[in-house]
Amino acid sequence: MLDDPAVALTIFTLSIFVGFEVIAKVPPLLHTPLMSGSNAISGITIVGAILSAGHEDRTISTVLGFVAIVFATINVVGGFLVTNRMLEMFQPKKRS
């Protein structure tokens, strides 16, 4: 589907606009969780890493793909967990 550059560019441009609209509503209070959360999302590149590492023939690309999976997983898992840890702190709780 993305073979057509015009389609690809359309998706890209519209996504950027959606991104601007959604992110502009995030209050400064939550800017740090926003960064770590969006960081986790940029770990979506794990999808590409899986495709590179999962080829049937093992080559140098498999090795690069493996390292890429490790990096991207750190990003995804570390990003979502640390974001959750921070957001929990913003929840109202009974203070002693």
Binding site: D3, I11, S38, I41, T45
Partner: peptide, 27 residues
């Protein structure tokens, strides 16, 4: 991430990548 989406022809990567790109630019 968005660029790798174009390399692999993967719309999921393109959409999520540009979302993060936009977020970082706003900040």
């Amino acid at each position: 991430a968005c660029a790798t989406g174009f390399v692999l022809g993967n719309s999921g990567l393109v959409i999520s990548g540009s979302l993060v790109g936009a977020s970082g630019l706003i900040l």
